[in-house]
Structure formats: C-alpha cells, structure tokens
Amino acid sequence: MASATPTPAAATVAPQFGAGGVRLFRAWTTLLMLSFNRLFWSMNTLMVLFPLVGCALFLVWRRYDRWTFAEGSFRAFSEEFMIFLFTSFVVPVCALAYATTSVGGDREDRTLLFLLVRPVPRWLILLAKLLATLPLVLGLVLTSFWVYCRLAGPIGEKAFWIYLTPVFYMTLAYVSLFHLFAVTFRHSTIVALIYSLFMEFLLGNMPGLVKRIAVNFYGRSMMYDLGGAEGLRSPDPEWFVPVSAWGAGCSLLGISAGAIVLTLLIFSLREYRDLT
C-alpha cells in the first residue's frame, strides 16, 4: 500500500544469506559458466574460424622452407606471418570477437538487465565475464599459434617458444582493452574493429612516441627483442625504435591491468539506461 506515513514492516522475512559468501560464490560461478558457454556456442566461434583457417592456408602456401632451416626463413616467418598477419590481425580479431560480446552482447540484447538485478556485485559480474572470455580467447589463440608453428616446420617450432610470451601478453592486453570498450561504448564491436584494424595499424606505424600507445607496438618490440638472436631485425630505427622485451612486457601487463581496473570501475558505477 502506498502511503505518506510509515507502514508496518512486512511479515515476510528476506531470504537469509547467512552463508553469504558461499551463495555469492555459487552465483558467480554460475555466471562464469553461463558466460563461457554462451560465448563458446555463439556464432562468433564460427566466424573466427575463417581467419584462422585462412592463416593455415597461407602457411601451407608460403612453406617457409618447411623441412630445412634455410637462412632467413625464420626472419621471413617472423615478419610476414607473426608480426604482419598473426599478431596484427588474428590476435585482435579473436580477442574482439569474444571480449566485446561478453558484455556488449548482453548489453545489445538487453539481457544484461537480468544480471544487474541479481544479488551479485557489479564488479563481480564483470569479473566473471572477463574470466569466461580469457580462457576462450587464450585457448583459441595459443592453440592456433601452436598449429601454425607446426605447419611452418622446424622454424615454427623454434618460433613457438620464442614468441609464446609476447602472444600471450598481447592477447591479454587486447581482451582487457576490448572489455573496456564493451562497458564504455554501446556498439563496442564496431568501435573495437575500427580500433584494431585501423587505429592500431596507424598508431603503431606513426613516427616518434605516438606509436607507444598501441598494443601492437609493445608486442612487436618484444618479438624483435626476443627474436633478435635468431636473426630478426627491427625495421629502420628512423621510424621504429623498439623498447626492450622486459619493458614491453611490463607495458603490456600494465595496459591489461589498467584496462581491467578501469573496466571494473566503469561497470560498477555506470547506469545502463538503454536496457529498458
């Protein structure tokens, strides 16, 4: 009954969350599994298979002196495939396919509302989404990376262990960054696509310090540094001065951590007025 004066409290007793932490954990793991399953069984999985298969076909076609350790083949594989194709295109595409959908999909479908009215703190909702996305993207990227390296023969096997860390860090950074896009922009997939295919490319190839705001720059710096012993050389120092592998790794982890903290903060505070 609506009234201007106090009404006696209801006889109904609120459900007791005596073991509040346990209940919260159950709710959170449910959300984690729900998010993982919905992402895995989505059309996105089918969509990312196209570039992944495309890369495999490219490797088969290009060969890279597959069964010999010819001079220059490691460098060619690193520059053409690892830097130009895999880390500049495949990794960001895989990351954006899932990272923007994990929150952005729920937001666009307006099913996010059903999550926001459950007794789970918002930051934990976002954390569940993030942790559901990460193993999926990392699994996909690292598995495909391993397959590509096998396809490339002995140089690929060598490259796998050299480039595993930069690929891992870059994937982590892209997933974190695209989650930030997802909680910030309504059509985050489009924004992320424009960012990864154009902004990253443009920024990453700008002269001077501007390129240092691109994830791709740090990934490439790591690869140039780590691959240097095998003959990989960084481009003309006039326009590309890489940072050390250690510095680049720290930067990528810093970008990831910063993006995650910012994402949690925005998601915890933001009103999503477009849900109803």
């Binding site: 459900p15 969350f17 346990v22 209940r23 919260l24 159950r26 709710a27 449910t30 959300l31 729900l34 919905r38 069984w41 479908d109 307006r110 099913t111 509302l113 059903f114 999550l115 009215v117 459950r118 007794p119 789970v120 849900l275 109803t276």
Partner: peptide, 28 residues
C-alpha cells in the same frame, strides 16, 4: 523484477532460464 522488455536468452527453454536466474541468486 519483471522488466518491460522482451529480451531473453532465446536459445534457452523457459525452465532453463528460470533455473539459471535461481542459480544467479546463489541457490544450490
């Protein structure tokens, strides 16, 4: 809360959807 929207996890059955919502409230 029963909102004024017509959006669901369309791939689920009604029973699954309600069950998931119960689980998201922390029930076993």
């Amino acid at each position: 809360f029963s909102p004024d929207i017509n959006s669901f996890y369309e791939e689920m059955t009604g029973r699954e959807f309600v069950y998931v919502m119960a689980r998201l409230c922390g029930h076993t």
